[in-house]
Design a binder for these strands. Structure first.
Length: 426
RNA sequence: GUGGGUAUAGCUCAGAUGGAUAGAGCACCAGAUUGUGGCUCUGGGGGUCGUGGGUUCGAGUCCCAUUACCCACCCCA
């Protein structure tokens, strides 16, 4: 146990972490372009926030939360998603009092106690955005388009964008009644799960993956059939705005999504070839959530994407993932006498803004060269007895296999000139 | 929470029907006429065979349990 990480968690090691940094860089960049500001909320919150915010009949709350009692006997929970915290912060820090809309983004680890599987972990990482304070369907389209824009920039292809409207408090009861009327005679044929859903949340039956249920549900009235006029208008406008951007989408009448707080627009992005957990992002509008959490009636919309699944999809699609460049310089010593001079030079090189390292294992010249070569270092700066005597250093270009003897005082200038005239190829 | 598969060196894996000092490739380290990397050659260090029980004269190999990983259900990112 001592040397094993907890189930469903991952170490992101050198070699892999560069991919994460790359994605985080791209995400921050795109947020800047779209006018979203970063928010950093705690990784744990009072349990009641998620009970209220996520919905206490959801799977997340019913069986997936990491909840514990702290030393002050408060029940706290490792966040299973990001929206609830954003809403809490919006209220606690009174962002509703400032200019609207408020456009936020966040990224970081989320926690759900679930059985690990391809693309599913107990600690996983999400990036998400939330927009508070606007009813405008164009915002729905912006949020959707922003996610699609991001996927495109990192080179993901063959994605399917599913959109739907799940209605509002005005049309939900109507839909609920229609669905119950429809399923009542077929109740016996539904899976046990869906028999429960019939009472608690018949909408979710449409989302069931059991083949029997989905066959039965094929003829069922869907959310779209029961939408009120304002919902229909809103949905039409969202689609119109997506059309304006030439964003292809599939109207998926069966798309419901598992969190209770969604109203109006719901959407999900699916990637092929990453296993059964094919959703790489999703979101929707949650006009009632802020009020549910004790705030003023405030419209909101957001989405979240899973970084692990994005990376999985990128690997499977062969997307280019930038590698970190090697060191610029490795300072090599031949003989112990040169150690002091080498150490001093190493720091002068670094202070000049050139990345550099040296051997700390007392290795032979040959071994140091080998190490430098393997690490992809651009230059070796070699100091031995002869160089000490003449106050010089040998600067070797590892790729070009050329070297020159340079006066010690000129080494940095020489390196800078070399790097300027022949920048390293990626 | 349910089901299936896997677990042997740092990595990828060999090790029929139980009986060698448990192997290979890659990686790592050191050498190849004593100050120079990537190729080649030679040599070397490394494994309580996931863990704990059991069967047996004898278990990496069979049985049970346990843990982890992989995959699927479920759900979702």
């Amino acid at each position: 146990m001592l040397t094993m990480r907890p189930r469903g968690t991952n170490d992101i090691m050198p070699g892999e972490v560069e991919t994460w940094q790359y994605l985080e860089r791209q995400l921050r960049h795109i947020c800047g372009e779209y006018g979203y500001a970063e928010i950093r909320t705690p990784i744990f919150e009072h349990t009641e926030l998620f009970l209220r915010g996520v919905g206490d009949t959801t799977d997340i709350v019913e069986k997936e939360m990491y909840t514990f009692i702290d030393r002050g006997e408060r029940s706290v929970t490792l966040r299973p998603e990001g929206t609830a915290s954003a809403v809490r912060a919006y209220l606690e820090d009174k962002l509703y009092a400032g200019s609207q809309p408020v456009k936020l983004y966040y990224t970081g680890p989320m926690f759900r106690y679930d059985r690990p599987q391809a693309g599913r972990y107990r600690q996983f990482h999400q990036f998400g955005v939330e927009v508070f304070g606007s009813h405008d369907p164009a915002v729905d389209a912006e949020v959707i388009a922003m996610s699609m824009d991001f996927y495109g920039r990192i080179g993901l292809k063959n994605l399917a964008l599913h959109v739907n409207s799940v209605g509002c408090p005005a049309c939900r009861p109507h839909l609920r009644r229609q669905l119950q009327d429809f399923f009542r005679p077929r109740l016996a044929s539904l899976c046990p799960n869906c028999r429960e859903r019939y009472e608690k949340n018949p909408l979710r039956i449409l989302d069931c993956k059991e083949s029997r249920c989905s066959e039965l549900g094929a003829e069922a009235p869907t959310t779209i059939d029961c939408l009120c006029d304002s919902c229909l208008t809103h949905f039409a406008s969202v689609k119109k705005h997506l059309d304006l951007l030439h964003l292809p989408y599939i109207v998926d009448r069966r798309l419901v999504r598992g969190l209770d707080y969604y109203t109006h627009t719901a959407f999900e992005i699916m990637a092929p070839d990453i296993g059964a957990q094919s959703s790489i992002g999703g979101g929707g509008r949650y006009n009632g959530l802020v009020e549910t959490c004790g705030g003023p009636p405030t419209p909101g919309i957001g989405y979240a994407l899973g970084l692990e699944r994005i990376i999985l999809a990128m690997k499977n699609q062969g997307c280019a993932i930038p590698r970190s460049p090697g060191l610029d310089v490795f300072v090599v010593t031949a003989g112990k006498a040169a150690e002091h001079t080498a150490f001093h030079l190493l720091f002068k090189i670094r202070r000049a803004g050139i990345s550099a390292d040296k051997d700390y294992l007392n290795r032979s010249l040959k071994a140091q060269m080998k190490y430098a070569g393997k690490a992809g270092t651009r230059f070796a700066v070699i100091i031995g007895e002869e160089e000490l005597k003449s106050d010089t250093a040998v600067v070797r270009d590892m790729d070009a296999q050329e070297q020159a003897t340079v006066a010690m005082g000129e080494v940095i200038k020489y390196l800078q000139a070399k790097m300027r005239h022949a920048p390293r190829l990626p």
